[in-house]
Design a protein around this nucleic acid. Structure first.
Length: 548
DNA sequence: GCCGTTTTCGGCCCGACTGTTTTCAGTCG
């Protein structure tokens, strides 16, 4: 049975081939279908079984048939026929930055070049000199792009928690350099997508040249790829591309909206604008020549008769229709997180580390923190916090903060509490070769959270179990938490999410903001999140304020 | 190939930047 990801890849390959063959609109149609399939929270086969493929945006009669053929036979005759029409290496040429379908097709038909290696060879032999449309600069551009594409990590999307500190440093660097009035991040970073292909930074400034100069000189910046009057594109030393744009304050909202995307969201907004006789672009919203809005995002949405849409859900999955009906149901926000049920201290934590964590919890106005005091680690070995730290957890009576003890158990039941320290509730984590949920529900009366359960695939097994066992699942970055798609599946099934606050971590750690972003991307409101509840409601009995 | 509170046909976001142009094509986001 093909996975959704494989089906999406198939349609992307079809789009690439159609591009090279010079088709005008089909490629985008197939890419749209691929994006839709990728964002499903259930298997394509399940949707097909219910006969609901056509309800997926971008899937019509023809693509529905192709999906059915692919699901039943594992092949697609149309794709196999297309494959024979272009050399396989041509599609690799499309991956080279600056090389598009038109150019790849010309290389193939005019020079007989069928792949990146052959193209590099042709350049080295001077076969491109004299070819119409390819001057020395263009040839050099392609040559260096080919060399860069052959290098490690080129063109890779970066996990957002990896990109997070990079983005923060760039913003801080630009602010420190001066000349910047307002600065915001846009793009898939702002939407908190799981991975980002580049970073988009928007600034207002009366001195664009000064800002571009400062940007070019930031220590993270490797190479300036292009620079015009309103935008500069650089590649960081570690390979990430960053676009910096200067926009005027009267258009900031329109630009922020435009460059935040997603593409599908923008296209949908524009079609609504067109229907109303309006035009939206990054400079504002216009009736004829007259700009009727653009200073804020709200202005642009309002001009289209829409409520403001939070960036995390701008994916054209129905949010625009909902915004047309009225204000959207609010997504969970950081101040609503009243506690954290899953805090880790270092295995050798001291009493002072405990105090530091509690101080951090107070500073963030958390009402309660549940600290893991021991259990089984990722390697399956048992561990316990040092006795000094345990004692401090019990003796700490910080006003306003309730401190609870959690233990981490293997989900397969291998680790019995036995010699584990006393705890108020437990957290399940998958260990070893069978990382799925337990076969039995947790003991009644004991509150349980499941964490470290893994991403999309694991979620398919954990979500039904968590629903029947009434166990919350943790969302957040990294391979061992639910991503936003898995979290959406959990939320739709009525499973509560736990959103870590990073209270035991460094101030600039990306865990908390990214986890919150994923929860919001999943569409979670405050009621969908376990740790927005008051302490007693979040965990049952453990977190009632202790009496001295 | 998809889609539809103007439509089942005729649209399909649109502007910046670059290199190669003597007015524009290709790529990108």
């Amino acid at each position: 049975m093909p996975t959704n990801r494989e089906a999406a890849e198939l349609f992307r390959s079809i789009a690439d081939i159609l591009d090279v063959l010079g088709e005008r609109f089909k490629p985008e149609a197939y890419r749209r279908a691929a994006r839709s399939i990728e964002s499903l929270t259930e298997d394509l086969a399940a949707v097909a079984a219910r006969n609901e493929l056509r309800t997926i945006p971008g899937i019509g009669e023809a693509i529905e048939e192709k999906i059915r053929e692919y699901l039943t036979t594992g092949h697609l005759a149309y794709y196999e026929r297309l494959q024979k029409e272009v050399p396989p290496g041509i599609l690799d040429l499309l991956r080279v930055p600056g090389l598009g379908p038109k150019t790849a097709r010309r290389f193939w038909l005019e020079l007989g070049v069928e792949g990146p290696a052959e193209l590099a060879d042709a350049i080295a032999k001077g076969r491109l000199t004299g070819v119409a449309g390819f001057g020395p600069k263009k040839v050099e551009q392609i040559r260096s792009a080919l060399a860069a594409a052959a290098g490690p990590g080129a063109g890779q999307r970066l996990p957002i928690d990896t990109a997070y500190p990079v983005a923060q440093r760039l913003v801080a660097g630009l602010k420190a350099a001066g000349g910047v009035e307002r600065i915001e991040l846009a793009g898939s970073f702002r939407r908190c997508r799981e991975t980002v292909g580049d970073l988009d930074i928007l600034v207002t400034s009366s001195e664009p040249e000064r800002v571009f100069d400062a940007f070019s000189r930031l220590p993270e910046v490797g190479e300036v790829r292009l620079r015009g009057g309103t935008k500069e594109t650089v590649v960081l030393r570690q390979g990430l591309q960053v676009d910096l744009r200067v926009v005027e304050p009267a258009a900031f909202g329109a630009a922020w909206l435009y460059f935040t995307g997603s593409k599908d969201h923008n296209v949908h907004l524009r079609s609504i604008a067109r229907d109303r006789g309006l035009k939206v672009n990054e400079y504002g919203i216009f009736r004829g020549e007259e700009r009727i809005g653009g200073r804020t995002e709200e202005e642009v949405y309002a001009a289209l008769g829409l409520a403001w849409v939070p960036p995390e859900i701008r994916e054209d999955r129905g949010e625009i229709d909902a915004a047309a009906r009225g204000p959207l149901p609010p997504l969970v926000t950081a101040p609503e997180l009243r506690g954290d049920l899953h805090c880790h201290l270092a295995p050798d934590a001291s009493a002072r580390d405990v105090d530091r964590m509690i101080a951090a919890a107070r500073a963030r106005h958390l009402d309660y923190v549940g600290v893991v005091v021991g259990g089984v680690g990722a390697d399956g070995a048992r561990w316990t916090l040092p006795s000094a730290a345990l004692a401090r957890l019990d003796s700490a009576r910080p006003p306003g903060v309730t401190v609870g003890r959690a233990r981490e158990d293997a989900s397969n039941g291998d680790a019995s509490p036995g010699d584990a320290p006393r705890s108020d509730y437990r957290i399940l984590r998958p260990i070893g070769s069978s990382p799925g949920p337990p076969t039995r529900p947790p003991p009644s009366g004991e509150w349980t959270l499941a964490a470290h359960v893994g991403g999309d695939e694991a979620a398919r097994r954990w979500v039904p179990w968590a629903r029947s066992a009434r166990v919350a699942l943790e969302v957040g970055p990294g391979p061992e938490r639910l991503d936003s798609t898995a979290a959406r599946a959990a939320r739709e099934a009525g499973v509560a999410l736990h959103v870590p606050t990073g209270v035991a971590l460094a101030e600039d750690d990306p865990l908390a903001p990214v986890a919150l972003g994923f929860a919001r991307r999943s569409g979670a409101g405050p009621k969908d999140v376990k740790n927005t509840a008051r302490a007693a409601d979040a965990t049952g009995a453990w977190a009632r304020p202790k009496r001295a």
